[in-house]
Design a protein around this nucleic acid. Sequence first.
RNA 1: GCCAGGGUAGCUCAGCUAGUAGAGCACAGGAUUCAUAUCCCUGCGGUCGUGGGCGCGCACCCCACCCCUGGUACCA
Length: 468
Amino acid sequence: MNKYYITTTLPYVNAEPHLGFAMEIVQADIIARYHRLLGNEVVFNTGTDEHGIKIYRAALAQNKDPQSYVDEYAAKFNSLKESLNLSYTNFLRTSSTQHKKAAQEFWKRCLENDDIYKKNYKIKYCIGCELERTDSELTDNKCPIHPNLEIETIEEENYFFKFSKYQQPLLDLYEKNPQFVLPDFRLKEIKEFVSSGLQDFSISRLKEKLPWGVAVFNDSDHVSYVWFDALVSYISTLGWPNDEKNFEEYWPVVQMAGKDNLRQQSAMWQAMLMSAGLPCSKQIIIHGFITNAGQKMSKSLGNVIDPFELVNKYGTDALRFFIAHDLNTFEDSDVTVERIHESYIANLSNGLGNLVARVAKLCEQNKLSGVTGSNVWCTDLEKYLGEFKFNEAIAVIWQLISEADKKVNLEKPWELEGQKAKEVLEDLVKKIQAIGYNLQPFMPETAEKILKQFSGEIKSQAPLFPRI
RNA sequence: GCCAGGGUAGCUCAGCUAGUAGAGCACAGGAUUCAUAUCCCUGCGGUCGUGGGCGCGCACCCCACCCCUGGUACCA
């Protein structure tokens, strides 16, 4: 039995779960379920990234202590498990004791490898926002929200990681493993970034300024900055460093991440792993973003699509279907509620749901029972899932649905009687069983319903996807 | 500015090394009644971002330009 380990990125808990993250975690879930059905033992990890100044401030603003603030958000994100019917095995919170110990140990290993040193670091700071700002957040060295204020520069001594040392090892990693990052144009992108030269990055902040973080193990004046905290979660969730056996069984990981995370996951994190003397990740899958009617979803625009609302209206499997069938795996996807509705009616009500209903009724009328089909994966589906092409994979199943519908119209089983009718219907039932079987990773609840309905005595049942 | 991805039917997208433009949805008509006014058949619908170039021939190759998206590092 093989071990398989897949993880999402850990969302930062300063906002509600949005459709973009729902896409990432549903995609990971499809892969996890698929591997389980292949007979593999799967660790499927997700969780929450809970440290940092933004969270600390948000908690204070709500008069909460940071821990109870992140507890609330962790519960919200964890509730996606039920709403989206996710099968993750691990939910790693970066504020957990186990994780903090792992983050400290990770730091220690990199330090022992002579990759961590102290250096003065210039921070740009907007007095108006009372926040650190990066160059990319500024226009003409001014804060866009407070253009009348000067940006202040604060110097402080931070710890740095010798990222620059790993330029060649990273390039070797990409060279040796052309599938390391999917899709290929993202691999190309990260290659070019690494080739153009790497600067060491700062990995700590003064504790007096950022009290909410993981303490640096040998310097109580500092806490780890995000990289040496959140990224370590991918190994701390396996019990590293204490549970060496579990770690070695499951590592390396397949990581799902958004295109904004390309650099962190496929370069910075990999260099950190090299420094700590650990094997690199197995593969990084980079997906695109979701826009609404061509615009980026944002609270201020009020065009955020809430995954919980969609589940309430259309159901869990309908949303999972939409994510797999209608979104591009690697490119950006534009989503509108109209599009979701159209897809629901065309593919689920009229397509899958209608086929199941009409064949079930015909079977009932002919008292058909005890048909057993072979449980096999469509070869194209296996191929596409291996390439993380979710839309092409699920299209294979819809091809089967279309063929079955055509067959019903061609054979006209309602005009047949006795043995001839049974032969035709048995063949159709086998096709539907195959559809149900292949549907399992994508729409587990629907797949189970179908397989159950078409085993033993076949009866007509309530519509799978009622018209809305 | 630089780097990357994209600009193909009303919409979402396929189009491998160049060889008479495809699918699904939407729309219109027909047929059927087992089915959730469903399914099936037929049809409508594109000067493939613009302008040049090399080809017997280019959506696909080359050059220039326009537009959209993302990145341009310590933001998760």
